[in-house]
Amino acid sequence: MSALLSVEGLGISFGGLRAVHDVSFAVKPGEILSVIGPNGAGKTTLFNMISGVYRPGAGRVMLNGEDVTAMRPDLLARRGMSRTFQNLQIFQNMTVLENAIAGFHLTESGSLMADLLRLPASRARARTAREGAMRLLERVGLERAAETDAGNLSYGRLKRLEIARALALDPKVLLLDEPAAGCNAVETEEIDHMIAEVAASGVAILLVEHDMKMVMRISSHIVVLDHGEKIAEGDPATVSRDPKVIAAYLGAEAGEETDA
């Protein structure tokens, strides 16, 4: 099968800092491609370029054979791209359920007039979205918090809410930026299963994750970034033996935090 999403020579600089430089890779439907690397390596920046939040300074992003470089995120969403954020982007002014319903925006929105007059068509669309959202909340174990204000949820639960919202788009490509951060071992395993399940249904997944055990277990393919550049790529076994990868991680560990 050919690649669903590919990036070619992607790069961006902030002032003098080359945050990402000349990164290329491709993901096929059903694959889980993990992007790993020490803190500040450029993983989130890479996601932001792919998802249209940042405009790349160089390179292209191809989705389903179409050049979607620097395309607006809402247009990318229409083309089947969905994502979560490392630094949560929750609608704090809504309940948990409404956050999940918001993920159905593209299928539930219709005419403004129908909404203003609360016509049956509008209500039917809203109801369908609500039911779908409820099912997703059950899937991530948040059904009992449905009516809670989203702002009152713990960090780990908000992470899962973002996953539910991202899945609501029924994406072809899903970008997950540290979905298991702040989650305990049990929750991490649940998320792990869920990601594998979503991939098995034919979605191409791009994953950034610090939990190396999880990455090694579920990735079909790994890309390693360091200082914005791709230093290694391959299957989990190959990458974990790569001396450059080990060096990059040892360097980072000596610097500040431990990623294991």
Binding site: V53, D74, A77, S82, Q89, F91, A102, G103, R165
Partner: peptide, 9 residues
């Protein structure tokens, strides 16, 4: 969240 609103379409 404008950025989250955009990503859901």
């Amino acid at each position: 969240s404008e950025v989250a609103a955009r990503t859901v379409g």
